[in-house]
């Protein structure tokens, strides 16, 4: 279970990106974060695995306060939390297999990296992960030779290597076309439903949100302005919509 309490983030330049945000995510939930550009979605996701240092507040992950974790504890926590990025964040010049293998680094001794050593069983695990996202045949290609959709699947395979209990996905389909978007979110949904992996995902398109979310939170200017179940988001009122997206916002697509 993930509990976020009074989370605030003030960047060094004084920007208040998150202001007193609190919510709870139960295990196995598919939580979608919505909000305008600049509303603090990325900041929130990055605070959870402390890629960004929160300024105030607590984040409890199965009872452990992430914000107070030491470096070594943080390593153990992070390897249980996979992360998927809008721009995939693959190492373009490395092979697909190596990119997937790097997902396992949190479990391996540091110094092995000096001799570029991965045990056989990790390589098998990586092939299996690629198998699951359907691009095992590309294992030995360089990552920069892949299409966007394939790259995001490599990103998922990398997260799978962590055997995660939770996946953070920051606009994972924003750079992909609608068909690919459904395919990628479909993978996440399968993982969520079959393995009970909690998913925290920020999304821009309301129809996608309505299709996949079991729970939704809405941010606006760093404040939590909406909280609802999957059922509620599918029947979102104009009032609520404007609360999240602003008074001038127009709903382009309704239903899902």
């Amino acid at each position: 279970m993930l509990v976020v309490e009074h989370l605030t983030k003030v960047y060094e330049d004084g920007t208040v990106a998150l202001k007193d945000v609190s919510f709870t995510v139960d295990d196995g939930e598919f939580l979608v974060i919505i909000g305008l550009s600049g509303s603090g979605k990325s900041t929130l996701l990055r605070c959870i695995n402390r890629l960004i240092e929160p300024t105030e507040g607590r984040i409890l992950w199965n009872g452990v306060d992430i914000t107070q974790a030491s470096e070594a504890e943080m390593r153990r926590i992070r390897r249980e939390i996979g992360m998927i990025f809008q721009h995939f964040n693959l190492v373009e010049r490395s092979s697909v297999l190596t990119n997937v293998l790097t997902g396992r680094l949190g479990y391996l001794p540091s110094w092995w990296s000096l001799i570029n050593y991965f045990p056989e069983r990790e390589k098998e695990r990586a092939m299996a992960a690629l198998e699951r996202v359907g691009i095992a045949d590309k294992a030995h290609n360089r990552a920069d030779a892949l299409s966007g959709g394939q790259k995001q699947r490599v990103g998922i395979a990398r997260a799978l290597m962590q055997e995660p209990k939770m996946i953070l996905a920051d606009e994972p389909v924003a750079s992909l076309d609608p068909v690919l978007a459904h395919s990628i979110l479909g993978y996440l949904e399968t993982l969520n439903q079959e393995q009970g992996i909690t998913v925290l995902c920020s999304l821009h398109y309301l129809d996608l949100v309505q299709r996949y979310a079991t729970k939704v939170i809405g941010l606006r200017d760093g404040r939590l302005v909406y909280e609802g179940t999957g059922e509620q988001i599918r029947n979102i009122t104009d009032e609520e919509f404007k609360q999240v997206y602003g008074q001038e916002a127009q709903r382009l697509s309704v239903g899902g």
């Binding site: 996979g82 964040n89 990398r158």
Partner: peptide, 12 residues
Amino acid sequence: EALQATGASRLQ
């Protein structure tokens, strides 16, 4: 950022 998120150490 992606590697840090997997729990990789600084050296890795």
